[in-house]
Design a binder for these strands. Structure first.
Lengths: 193, 193
DNA sequence: GATCCGGGTTGACCTAGGTCAATCCGGATG
DNA sequence: CATCCGGATTGACCTAGGTCAACCCGGATC
């Protein structure tokens, strides 16, 4: 399935639009490819687009004072990535977004998105539903971090991200669940036993 | 300002609707009052409504295995509360929502909200924007928990929630930033010095 | 086949923050 | 005025997870 077909299928999970509308929607998107380790976005710059992953995989993360990486999201194919904080409040972001595989994307800029909302208000619905789901998951993540041990968080991670877990390094998983690679390694060892 | 005026003003921050539409919107809401410590929602039940706080204040939290409370959100007047995870995925929630002051609310059930979307699709936009903002803040909270010390999180909390901080107990603030009351007390002491 | 490099592992040690129980304090309640 | 109750504080001790540096290993690269 090509990128355009993928994104149209994604949209059709939530709203139904005619062939003409589909064509119009696609015309607003801009495709772009990145190779492994290339940045889609850097800390300090304003994020002014929604990026849909058609193939590959991307991570968003921030670097703390010590230079340690903390992964916020992992976006595989059929997923959107954005630095919401930067996008929504139109301020410089503190996230990096980086390809962890060679990846191809479709980009919807803020302006094009507004245009889309004007021409096809159903897309308000599409993004509303999308965001409500993402928000729910994010809330869950907050409560998980607040109330679970690292081991329990890892359990959940394995269940929820079974499909992509295999393609991630231990360092990345460790960062996502919020522990150091060293500790994560020990955790695994303890579990194996 | 009464509750209806408050919610209409809130809506008008994001979309503009006619007087007639306002009346219709209001007709879908159901008002209800709670006294301090009363539950709006309990763990295990399905959350099937959005609740707008018109006066007072509410917290949502979960209890972990040990029975310790972890506050997820604090919603003052002019704010919505929902257990998104339960609402969006239509599953039993694991949050309690409890009034921390006497509070009055306007309730929009899931069905009424769907009806609202059918009759006045602009409300898709209203909820989209609302959720995008809330999501951005939630993402920020995740990165804060992952990358900052308790003291730094408290700093941020003070800035962001200056207006309500005064009306919260230390226990509540401690739980919100993710530390125990005992540790929080020591933290304050260290700062005062 | 040597070198390099990016993981992953491991040991020895450290620290932020938790635990538990006692005590204190102020303001309702009776 | 005495009692109670829900915070807040404090001391003594504990532990999950961090730190730092050394080492290992497999698979590119030359």
């Amino acid at each position: 399935m090509d990128g355009q077909a993928l994104i149209l299928r994604n949209v059709s999970n939530y709203i139904s639009i005619t062939g003409e509308e589909q064509a119009y929607f696609l015309s607003l998107l801009q495709s772009r490819n990145y190779h492994r380790k290339e940045y889609l976005q850097r800390e300090g710059s304003n994020c002014n687009n929604f990026t849909f992953i058609t193939t590959g995989c991307v991570k968003s993360y921030l670097l703390d004072q010590k230079g340690d990486e903390h992964i916020l999201t992992i976006a595989p194919a059929d997923w959107w990535v954005v630095d919401y904080m930067s996008f929504v409040f139109e301020q410089p972001g503190n996230l990096f977004i980086e390809a962890i595989d060679n990846t191809s994307t479709l980009i919807l800029t803020k302006e094009k998105r507004e245009e889309l909302f004007r021409k096809l208000p159903q897309f308000e619905r599409y993004f509303r539903i999308l965001t409500e789901r993402a928000f729910a998951v994010s809330q869950q993540r907050v409560t998980d971090i607040l109330s679970l041990t690292a081991a329990a968080r890892f359990e959940k991670f394995q269940q929820r991200y079974a499909h992509i877990a295999a393609s991630l390094t231990q360092q990345q998983i460790a960062s996502f669940i919020g522990v150091t690679p060293a500790f994560f390694s020990r955790m695994l060892k303890a579990k194996r036993k």
